[in-house]
Amino acid sequence: MSENKMIKKRAVVDSRRCVACGACMAVCPIQAVTVPDGCFARVQEERCVGCGRCSNICPAGCISILEKGQEEQR
């Protein structure tokens, strides 16, 4: 995936399904994902490069990689 394509995408968390296990946080190469209050994971949009590692590891399947501006964080 080229740098440009990665920049255009970002991870979006479905907070209703997130189990806050933190698996996404552990694999994020730039620490753009956090689980601050133990309820669900949050993605810092400005930092996320949309590499998809979090989406790939998420056991609940609640992280999608979307085009920036495609959908607001649920």
Binding site: V19, A20, C21, A23, G38, I57, C58, P59
Partner: peptide
């Protein structure tokens, strides 16, 4: 997936 257990781990559900 490796951490599928975490999705229904009783401790995880309770702490969440």
């Amino acid at each position: 997936k490796p951490r599928t257990w975490c999705t229904f781990c009783p401790m995880g559900t309770m702490t969440q």
